[in-house]
Simulated assay, not measured.
Amino acid sequence: MQAPATPHAVPAPLLARAHALLQAGGRRLLGLVGPPGSGKSTLAQALQAALPTQSVIVPMDGFHLANAELQRLGRAGRKGAPDTFDSAGYAALLRRLRSQPAGETVYAPAYHRDLEEALAGAIAVDAAVPLVITEGNYLLLAEGAWGAVAALLDDVGYVDVDPTLRRQRLAQRHQQFGRSAEAAADWVAHTDEPNARLIEATRGRAGFVVRV
């Protein structure tokens, strides 16, 4: 059953959790986690649009390793797997955002799908903005440096979507950014889906579930 939506298309339970964090005062970090193609980025953008002066989005995807580094490490064919990100760097940024001094601007990286690369310093986070929305695949993963992330977040919502729709979205996305239909289907089956199963296993660690 789909949750009721606000005029900004934000499921009501998600908006309620965000308002609860804002009412608590201070800097708060809200995470959205889910498998590839679940709609995390779209939800984060809708929530930020509903709270335009009170929130900013800092995506996990800004910590993708550069393509040249993935080639060097022999991981280019698994881009999107946990070890293809700078997870320690992501955790370090979250720590900095939690304790950001008044008057300071923190600059976060952003991932550009058209370039298939992350760009440093692309997102300015002002200390006066109370809510940081961060979204990504591995916010609840316990292994390695990822294990520090969940404790740095005040609340985490798991984004749940029909798996067939999710896979269709992924195939369309891969084709949109240059893969053939066959190559897109292969990437979904052999790269995205193993990651999705890993992410789905972390669902029980989320504070709430957002069904879309």
Score class of each variant (00 low, 15 high):
8 H>W: 15
115 L>D: 13
187 W>D: 00
123 I>G: 05
54 Q>T: 07
150 A>T: 02
46 A>R: 15
71 Q>G: 09
11 P>G: 10
159 V>C: 06
140 L>P: 04
13 P>N: 12
111 Y>G: 04
154 D>L: 05
151 A>S: 15
85 F>S: 04
152 L>G: 10
18 A>L: 06
19 H>R: 15
122 A>L: 14
159 V>E: 01
60 M>R: 03
191 T>I: 14
104 E>R: 10
63 F>M: 05
71 Q>W: 06
93 L>M: 12
193 E>A: 14
151 A>P: 08
19 H>M: 11
2 Q>W: 11
18 A>V: 07
169 R>P: 05
134 T>V: 06
89 G>W: 08
22 L>Y: 09
146 W>Q: 10
147 G>P: 13
205 R>F: 08
106 V>T: 13
189 A>I: 02
139 L>H: 01
4 P>G: 09
25 G>C: 08
205 R>D: 07
123 I>L: 10
209 V>F: 01
2 Q>C: 10
58 V>E: 06
72 R>A: 15
108 A>P: 03
163 P>K: 01
94 L>M: 14
205 R>Q: 12
160 D>V: 13
174 H>Y: 14
111 Y>I: 04
147 G>R: 10
108 A>C: 09
38 S>G: 13
177 F>A: 03
150 A>R: 15
15 L>Q: 12
102 A>E: 14
189 A>V: 02
125 V>E: 08
203 R>N: 06
174 H>T: 04
37 G>Y: 03
10 V>F: 12
1 M>T: 11
21 L>W: 04
41 S>Q: 05
159 V>Y: 03
47 L>S: 09
195 N>E: 02
193 E>W: 11
206 A>V: 07
197 R>T: 11
204 G>C: 03
203 R>L: 11
154 D>H: 11
196 A>T: 01
191 T>E: 10
189 A>W: 06
51 L>D: 02
181 A>M: 04
47 L>K: 06
124 A>S: 12
187 W>S: 01
100 Q>D: 08
4 P>V: 07
50 A>K: 05
123 I>H: 07
96 R>I: 04
193 E>C: 08
166 R>N: 00
116 E>C: 07
52 P>A: 03
74 G>Y: 10
1 M>I: 08
17 R>M: 10
91 A>T: 07
87 S>Y: 06
206 A>L: 11
118 A>G: 14
200 E>A: 13
101 P>W: 09
48 Q>M: 11
186 D>R: 13
164 T>I: 15
47 L>T: 09
64 H>L: 02
